[in-house]
């Protein structure tokens, strides 16, 4: 009976991998659009926090998860608009603006949460998205648990990646976006509106980051906690590099990092593992460092990444 526990371990780990990867996939696929347009948004973490809070707050007050998602979307749009105004129109330093967003996201979400929701001292939880078992498929042994018993936000990642790859590689907009990130002047001479294209790239990235944040409060857990994103925004930045700036690359890279999260969770739950949990929690971030240092030479960033135009 050695095999069964090992299989069960693997099954629960793989299922958790996709769940854990979900917020990162949203943020990373969005950032692919932003960076392909030539803008580097390191403020993902902050925008995710804002989205997480906006989603939680509206869903809690209205009792409607879809309204919560909508609120996250709007918060992402607003964040993205402000980010784009500063980086594209004003041409401020993108790193500085991004860092500011991280601080604002952290401070704003914590401040609002404390003033509105933590007076009572109780955790105010909501009813999150429930798993949707796909009829038939969810009963397949092993695979059913791994692939077909997830909530809508998790399934949504696949739809998102397919759509993202289609838009980026099969539409005129995608072609313009990619050219703007590589050689904005060439794009300009063909009549493409470089700033407008970059605005759209930034907005897509910010909206998806906010939705990724909201998936933490509306699907992964059922409440808001200060700093709930815990570095996933930064991991998403690494994922974009590791995934070679492509939607599918970002998807698979997110799953890789999701597996590190899942692994450390499983290991924490095993009494025979005698490693202090703080070390286990650091695993995904350590893995990020190792992976980034050792494996990222193969891809090249968009040539105009981080460079304002004109």
């Amino acid at each position: 009976m050695e095999l069964m526990p090992a299989l069960l371990f693997l099954q629960s780990m793989l299922a958790a991998t996709w769940r854990m990867a979900t917020p990162i996939i949203y943020a990373a696929v969005g950032e692919v659009f932003t960076e392909r347009s030539g803008v580097l948004n390191i403020g993902l973490e902050g925008i995710m926090l804002i989205g997480a809070f906006a989603g939680y707050s509206v869903a809690y007050e209205t009792g409607n998860l879809v309204l919560g998602l909508l609120a996250a979307l709007v918060s992402g749009l607003l964040s993205g608009l402000i980010f784009a105004i500063f980086t594209v129109s004003v041409k401020a330093n993108q790193i500085v603006v991004g860092a500011a967003f991280n601080m604002i996201g952290m401070g704003l979400s914590a401040f609002l949460y404390r003033t509105i929701y933590s007076q009572s001292g109780r955790v105010l939880s909501l009813q999150p998205f429930r798993p949707l078992d796909i009829p038939g498929l969810s009963d397949i042994p092993f695979l059913g648990e791994v692939l077909f018993r997830h909530n809508i936000m998790v399934y949504g990642t696949v739809v998102l990646v397919v759509l993202a790859a289609f838009v980026l590689y099969r539409t005129a907009f995608g072609l313009s976006l990619r050219s703007v990130g590589e050689h904005p002047k060439a794009a300009d001479t063909t009549g493409i509106n470089v700033p407008a294209t970059r605005y759209v790239g930034v907005l897509i990235g910010a909206v998806l980051a906010a939705l990724g944040g909201a998936s933490l409060t509306l699907a992964y857990s059922d409440q808001f906690v200060e700093g709930i994103v815990t570095g996933r925004g930064f991991i998403a930045l690494a994922v974009v590099v590791f995934g070679a700036w492509s939607p599918w690359g970002a998807f698979w890279a997110s799953l890789l990092f999701g597996s590190f999260y899942a692994l450390q969770l499983r290991l924490q739950a095993m009494p025979e593992v005698l490693i202090p949990y703080q070390f286990l929690q650091a695993l995904p971030y350590l893995a990020t460092l190792v992976v980034l240092i050792s494996l990222t030479r193969r891809a090249r960033a968009p040539r105009a990444l981080g460079v304002p135009y004109p």
């Binding site: 539409t171 005129a172 072609l175 313009s176 060439a186 063909t190 493409i192």
Partner: peptide
């Protein structure tokens, strides 16, 4: 792709 760049409306599927 370079030749047609910028010649289509944004929403066009290529």
């Amino acid at each position: 792709e370079n030749v047609v760049l910028g010649q289509y409306p944004a929403w066009k599927v290529i």
